[in-house]
Design a protein around this nucleic acid. Structure first.
Lengths: 122, 122
DNA sequence: CTACTGTATTACTCCATAGCGATTTAGTCA
DNA sequence: TGACTAAATCGCTATGGAGTAATACAGTAG
């Protein structure tokens, strides 16, 4: 499954998937679901935002196959479908960490720090 | 490097990173850079959109540490910084493929198809 | 210097969507 | 049946950002 030869329609789908991760509140929700299913009221209380907001974000995540809903009485419990998504998040976090470190090194250069040495990067 | 304990500021940063991938045109650009550096004019011609648009997307990608710029005369060549980002894209493509397959299976169920058999997936 | 070329930036329009409050819908219990 | 609770949906505002054309800003050549 390779992104290389995808047509416009498929690329739009991939972009939509990334968009599901592109909102801090949704990342919070995914984090909260790490330790097991939660219902809408719980999450609303935890984040201190409106119930409508949480419900909508959950719908977006579900629509992208990231979480699944299970009704229990009047409650709706959501759970992570595939824990591998956390690997994806961690990959990104790692990359950002690296990027931030690089920027810090560049800043050091501008500030005249004599430590950089290994910034052989065009 | 784990997403679990990140504060709001860090989550905003992670979301921004995902946002860099959340536009089809930017995915196209990343695909185009797979086989080596390209300049702005080339990409503009290839995609048939405005040069301003390409330039702006390149700036966003560069700002997120995904690509790097190298000036050559009046031209600006951009290259992929870390090819591992394609692993990330492929992970996502795989997940989408799975998700689509699941949806197709569900559709089959609703259409009364008696072929599904192997959709053992909650 | 001027003319030319390739990029970046500006000013702008338009659309998608995050967020909220209010309402509707669905499930439960009396 | 009606009252209660939880979630989903609706109507709305405001903001972000993708796209464009036009302009500004290099670098190069003459």
């Amino acid at each position: 499954m390779d992104i290389k030869g995808l047509d416009d329609r498929a690329l739009e789908r991939v972009a939509e998937f990334f968009r599901a991760f592109a909102v801090p509140m949704r990342l919070k929700i995914l984090n909260a679901l790490r330790d097991g299913p939660r219902n809408v009221g719980d999450l609303t209380a935890e984040f201190g935002c409106s119930q409508a907001n949480v419900s909508k974000h959950l719908a977006v995540l579900a629509q992208n196959g990231l979480i699944a809903k299970e009704a229990q009485g009047t409650s709706a419990y959501y759970r992570i479908v595939d824990p591998r998504i956390y690997q994806l998040c961690d990959l990104v976090c790692g990359h950002i960490g690296q990027h931030v470190a690089d920027q810090a090194a560049v800043l050091d250069v501008f500030r005249g720090a004599s430590r950089p040495k290994r910034s052989r990067r065009a």
